[in-house]
Amino acid sequence: MTPTLSLSQLKKSYGSQRVLDGVTFDVPPGSIVGLLGPNGAGKSTLIRSIMGIVEPDGGEVLLSGQPWSREGARGIGYLPEERGLYKDMRVGQQAVYFAQLKGMKKPEAVASLKTWFERLEVQGWWDKKVSDISKGMAQKIQFICTVVHQPKLLILDEPLSGFDPINARRIIEEVRSLAADGTSVLLSTHDMPSVERLCDQVVMLNQGRVVLSGSSSELRETGWDGSQEVLFKGNDMAFTNALGALANLDSIGPTSISGVRKARIRLRDGVEPTDVLRALTQTMEVMEFIKVRPTMETLFIDAVSKVESETTAES
């Protein structure tokens, strides 16, 4: 299936500073791709290059298999990190204006906006001035303005900033729903839990290069270092003896349940979890034996640290 967005060897420099260095990845239809990276990694420049705000020095941007065009980019729903609304306009009037800039006719825009206003329960704010509404409410309006024209591709830069947990969940649900309906989403954020909850795939940028990419589950599986969490009834000495040479013990301690202990172990190379479980159950009652995969945050920090240490070594 043709990717909704396909980037190939995208390059951009500002003077002597290389901001994008051969960035390549795809956003398949209906998928949510997380774009991660530390500050200054090139995320904003990458997004602006896709939107045509910044002209890349090299590489290719394909939108649904077609070479980049202004008309194609206008169809993208873009929610920038630095976003705002005209304070001297009324909410509805402003939303219609943004929809018109996206190529919608006024009646069509009004109808679609009314639906979205009801869906996000902001219909009472249509005639209010922007200066009279709260920041969270303004964020909702901005989200509506981004999706009103039913874009095939959504680019959301820190979409949850400014939202309280309830409204953040609401937006996450809407993004999921749009993806389920076939909209592709490129989500740039520093909020790792939302990446884990939302993203099918992740692309990590550092110093303008893709340092890690793949599906979230694959990445977490690949990054697994053999950690297991074990809940058991028994004494610590017996537990250590049962582990023997199969795994290293990282930590051990009590739990809130009387007589139940919790240990964190790391399997040695070549050892399967079933081997350890078999050894433990021979001497004690094992209540839980859970594979502990790395969080996206851990993977992110590890990947960034790795690149930085390589750069330091090269220089």
Binding site: M51, I76, Y78, P80, E82, R83, L85, Y86, L101
Partner: peptide
């Protein structure tokens, strides 16, 4: 100042 411009230049040259 009110950060409207990035949305605008994304849609309009």
């Amino acid at each position: 100042a009110n950060h409207v411009v990035e949305v605008l230049v994304a849609a309009v040259r």
